[in-house]
Simulated scan of single mutants.
Amino acid sequence: MLSARSVLVTGSNRGIGLELVRQLVGKSKGPEWVFATCRDPEGPRAQELKNLAAKYQSVKILQMDTNDPSSIKNTATKVTEKLQGNGLNLLINNAAIVRVGTLESETAEDMSEVYKTNVIGSMLVTQAFLPLLRKASQKSPQKGMSCSKAAIVNMSSEAGSITNLLAWEYGHVINYRCSKAALNMLSRCQSLRYAEDRILCIALHPGWVQTDMGNTEGLAPLTVEESVQGILKALSHLTEKDTGTFVNWEGAPVPW
């Protein structure tokens, strides 16, 4: 069972991020803190998240633009203050964007923008929260690795699998595919670097999900609720043998 005391989710105002927050706080023994970050917490697209925060004291909404290093640093400072000497158990790098197009129509601007958010943003967020993840790992009485102790979950996609290239026939989305392949490499590197800290690092494919992003190339087969139920169940079973791997929402391995 996932029993992380504190969780941070980026891109939490809609889609998978919002549902992760909803299901985490809906558990009978949910986290003490769920830090829900998004670029515009005051905007209309964050209303559902604000409703959750009004209902559950454990939800703390924080403004964070993963493309802005100073914004990330400010958020890390606020989270550190809230945790009052405790560490952060689970970081879920979920914020991501896509720009629809073909291989022929792909532009340098779209490629750069998507890579900046999906790869560089995740890297910067992890760097900023690493001290808190290390602290959580050091303070935990648990042996080995787990998502309840200290973990980095990078929300990837089988669309970035070089072996499988999920849904190629439905859309090229080159910027998205390349960014997720790069995120997978980042996850693997993090797992090697932070093994000595006992921080579990994973790349996770949430499925082809019915979200604003998932439906850009037609109706996706998996509901957000089903995906997140599976994700949380899968995360609860991960151990040190899984660190540095690429798995799907059911915990099954995905080829690189």
Rank of each mutant, 00 (worst) to 15 (best):
M1I: 09
M1L: 11
L2N: 12
R5G: 13
V9F: 01
R14G: 02
I16W: 07
I16S: 11
G17M: 09
L18Y: 14
L18P: 10
Q23V: 07
L24C: 06
S28Q: 11
K29F: 04
G30Y: 04
G30E: 05
W33A: 06
A46M: 09
A46I: 04
Q47M: 08
E48S: 14
A54K: 13
I61G: 11
I61L: 12
M64F: 08
D65A: 01
S71C: 02
I72M: 01
K73Y: 02
T75Q: 05
V79G: 07
T80G: 02
T80S: 13
T80K: 11
K82P: 00
Q84G: 00
L91I: 07
N93M: 12
R99P: 00
V100D: 13
A108Q: 06
E109M: 01
S112C: 06
T117H: 07
G121M: 08
S122C: 15
M123V: 05
Q127R: 14
F129Q: 02
L132Q: 05
K135P: 03
K143E: 07
K143T: 08
G144E: 10
C147K: 00
S148I: 00
I152V: 15
S156K: 05
E158K: 14
G160L: 08
I162D: 00
G171K: 15
A182P: 10
S187L: 09
S187K: 11
S191V: 04
R193L: 06
A195F: 10
E196W: 00
D197R: 01
C201H: 01
W208D: 08
D212N: 08
M213L: 15
G214W: 02
N215S: 11
E217A: 15
A220G: 10
T223W: 11
V224D: 12
E226F: 07
V228L: 14
A234E: 05
H237M: 11
L238G: 03
T239I: 04
D242P: 01
D242E: 15
D242V: 02
G244Y: 00
